[in-house]
Every structure is written in C-alpha cells, then in structure tokens.
C-alpha cells in the first residue's frame, strides 16, 4: 500500500513537472493575449525536426543546430504574430482555424521530409542511467527534466513578480485598455509573450526527446495536455497551471499504478477536467490575472 502511494507521488511529480513545462507557454499566451493558441502544437515538432534539419541537412553539431532552431522558432513566432494574431485578433474563428492550419502544415512537412522510418533522434541526454528512490526507478534524464521544470517555473514566476516587464505583462493580462492608458506598449509585450512561450516548450522537448517518443504528430497530443492543464488551472493563471499540471500528473500515475491501466491516462484526465469544470467553471484559480 505504502509502496503504491510512493509510486503515485514519485511518478506524479515527475510527469506533472514535465507537463508543467509543456503547458506553461499555452497558459501564458491564453492569459496575456486572451486567445487559444491552437497553433501551439507546431512548436513541438519544430523544436525536434528543426534541430534535426540543421544537423542532417547542414551537417552542424548539436549545439549550433539548437541555436539555429531557436532562431527559426523566433522568426516563425514573430511572423505568426504579425501576419495572423495581430490582424485577426478580433476575428477569433479565422484566427483559431489559421493557427490550427499552421500546426498541420508543420506536422505534415515534418512527416513528408522526415518520415518515421528516418529515425530522427537527438542526442540531448544530459544524464545517463537510472535513478532509484526506494522502490521507484526512473531515467535520470526524466528526474533532471523535472528539476529543470521546477526551476524554470520559479524563474518565470520571479520574472512576473519581481521585474517591471513582468508587472507590465501582468497588467496587460488584467486589462488591455487600462494598460494602454498608463502607457504600456501592448504590441511589444504581445511579441515578448509570443517569444517567452517558446522557452519552456523548447527546453521540455530537448530534455524529453531521448526518453519519450518523437514523431511528427506528437504536437497534437502535447497540445491536448496543455489545453487540459490550462483549463483545469483557470485559463491563463500560472498558479492554477502549476497545481493543474501536478494534478494531471498524479491522475496519470494513479491510472498506471492503482488502476493498472495506462491506457486510461488521457481519458481520466479529460474526465477530471470535465468534472472540475462542472463544479468550478472558472477552473482551479481565478483567471483575471496570470499570477
């Protein structure tokens, strides 16, 4: 019994921390821009296949390839904001559809250029081997990813609490009109947010690439997880996102170690979100502000 509880807590923490990294960007953009970034799914394959492109096509080593991929991500985000988000923010249906199509284009391009049999693999392992705590055993890379996830979330929180830019972003998340009245450059803050959301996703993907499955369509699954966490947390609230990520992590661990059916992981998470939305439609935390 105690062993089972330990397994649930241990793996709930590990998975929750990785989910937190995956969902942090989505939650942030929902909180600040007040849009559902349904193109969020493109970030995941672009991170992996973008890096692979620089390595395989241009023959660059890993680190310069990652730098190249980050530059590509920044450019794509900027273009996406300028030509899509900014122009169609008042026309939500077109925006959501357009963003979804962008994700589809990236997925299909990756699948066309690098089909699964290509065997895309990034050597981003920072710690090799197995970590054991009690009876629970996990790859050291996953444990490291969880720790980095917590540190990164803490840095994000500090950024929003302690810095002037963070304060401005928080103000923007509360009221756009009044933020403009007090002289905030809304446009720049929006672009900054579009860039900020890249960090957790890129870090998460590079850390988990050696241990989790990599395929062109992976973005949809991760985006679904991000959506679930963002909604459960109360659209756009980081505190809520943190709690929701660990709740989903524990829920997944429960399905694996208590129910004994890992296949129920996604279904139970969806059911959990539905139930919480019925009981508390605004999610776990208030969503008037990102913090």
């Amino acid at each position: 019994m105690l062993d089972t509880i330990w397994f649930v807590l241990f793996f709930g923490f590990l998975m929750g921390a990785v989910y937190l990294l995956i969902a942090l960007g989505f939650s942030l953009i929902t909180g600040v821009l007040r849009i559902f970034h349904l193109g969020y799914a493109y970030l995941f394959p672009l991170t992996i296949y973008g890096t692979w492109f620089f390595m395989s096509e241009l023959g660059l080593p890993l680190i310069p390839s990652i730098v190249g991929m980050v530059v590509v991500q920044l450019i794509v985000s900027y273009l996406l904001y300028t030509f899509m988000v900014k122009r169609y923010m008042d026309d939500e249906m077109t925006l959501l559809t357009g963003l979804l199509i962008v994700a589809l284009i990236v997925e299909q391009f990756a699948a066309w250029r690098y089909p699964i049999q290509e065997g895309v693999y990034l050597e981003t392992t920072l710690m090799d081997g197995i970590f054991q705590l009690g009876l629970a055993v996990a790859p050291k890379q996953l444990v490291l990813a969880s720790i980095i996830a917590l540190v990164m979330t803490a840095l994000f929180a500090l950024f929003f609490i302690k810095t002037k830019t963070g304060l401005a972003v928080r103000a923007l998340s509360q009221d756009i009109l009044n933020s403009q009245f007090v002289g905030l450059n809304v446009e720049k803050l929006y672009i900054l947010t579009m860039m900020l959301i890249l960090i957790p996703v890129i870090v998460a993907m590079l850390l988990i690439a050696p241990i989790w499955t990599v395929e062109p369509a992976m973005g949809w699954q991760y985006m679904t997880t991000a959506i679930l966490i963002a909604v459960l947390g109360g659209l756009g609230n980081i505190k809520g996102t943190i709690i929701a990520a660990f709740l989903i992590g524990i829920d997944h661990a429960l399905m694996c170690f208590v129910v004994g059916e890992p296949r129920f992981m996604n279904l139970s998470a969806l059911a959990l979100v539905m139930v919480i939305l019925i009981v508390r439609p605004q999610g776990i935390a208030r969503s008037e502000s990102i913090w």
Binding site: T30, F36, L96, T224, I227, L228, V231, L235, N266, L270, V273, M274, L277, P281
Partner: peptide, 15 residues
C-alpha cells in the same frame, strides 16, 4: 460554456 471554454470543450469531445 461560452467563448473559449465552449470551443475547448467541444474540441476535446471527439478526442
């Protein structure tokens, strides 16, 4: 549900 919540919940149902 309305707005984004409705979009999201209906999006999740087929999944």
């Amino acid at each position: 549900a309305k707005g984004l919540y409705y979009v999201l919940l209906t999006l999740l149902l087929p999944l």
